[in-house]
């Protein structure tokens, strides 16, 4: 049980895919112009990550070593097609905003990385918790970046206006340059916090 919780928490802080491992960065930059988009993309990725981790873990003794990469890609592609179609039907607005980044979950390095490094070696239950932890780590990172960009760029949070409509906001934070700068500064902040924590302990 302890090991399960450790696997789960690992993805949320120590090996956070966005701030620590710095993998799977395209959606992090592209869809975080608002906090809500960040949550949507994060949850979609979490679903694909957890399902593909479970399936790959179940199949780990069946998949031949030499063709494992194409096998993983097929599993991941199947689940991201599922998410793509379901979101298109149920949440057309969010689907339109996230656009091609939903099918692009296939080439998100987080999924391939977890399949290769973890799910292909561990029993199902561990793989599931690892996938869930990584997914939640990814989701909170996206939500945080989205919240910062939305507050600075549009003066709102989760669509709720925080300042008066006429107030001047830093529009650049809603645009592509703002995405890069926000992520750069947040990574620096995360490094500072980690250094402090290490010194304290």
């Amino acid at each position: 049980m302890g090991a399960l919780i450790k696997d789960f928490l690992n993805g949320i802080w120590n090996d956070n895919p966005t701030f620590r491992l710095q993998i799977g960065l395209c959606p992090v930059l592209a869809v975080t112009s608002t906090a809500l988009n960040g949550v949507g993309m994060g949850l979609a990725t979490t679903f694909v990550l957890m399902c593909s981790s479970i399936l790959i873990s179940i199949l780990r003794n069946v998949i031949p070593e030499k063709v494992r990469i194409p096998c993983y890609i097929i599993v991941i592609a199947t689940f991201s097609t599922v998410v793509d179609l379901v979101m298109h039907a149920m949440l057309p607005d969010l689907h339109r905003v996230l656009g091609i980044f939903i099918p692009l979950i296939v080439v998100n390095c987080i999924l391939m990385g977890r399949a290769e490094a973890y799910a292909s070696k561990k029993p199902v239950i561990y793989a599931a918790f690892d996938g869930l932890g990584m997914g939640i780590g990814f989701t909170w990172a996206l939500t945080l970046i989205g919240a910062v960009r939305e507050m600075l760029g549009a003066g709102s949070l989760f669509g709720v206006q925080l300042v008066s409509d006429t107030a001047a906001t830093f529009g650049v934070f809603s645009l592509p340059p703002g995405a890069f700068i926000t992520v750069g500064l947040l990574i620096a902040g995360m490094n500072m916090i980690s250094t402090r924590l290490r010194k304290a302990s």
């Binding site: 710095q22 703002g178 995405a179 890069f180 700068i181 750069g184 500064l185 990574i187 620096a188 490094n191």
Partner: peptide
């Protein structure tokens, strides 16, 4: 990486 992102932003 931090500074690399800020350069990319510019």
């Amino acid at each position: 990486t931090g500074i690399a992102f800020i350069i990319a932003g510019l």
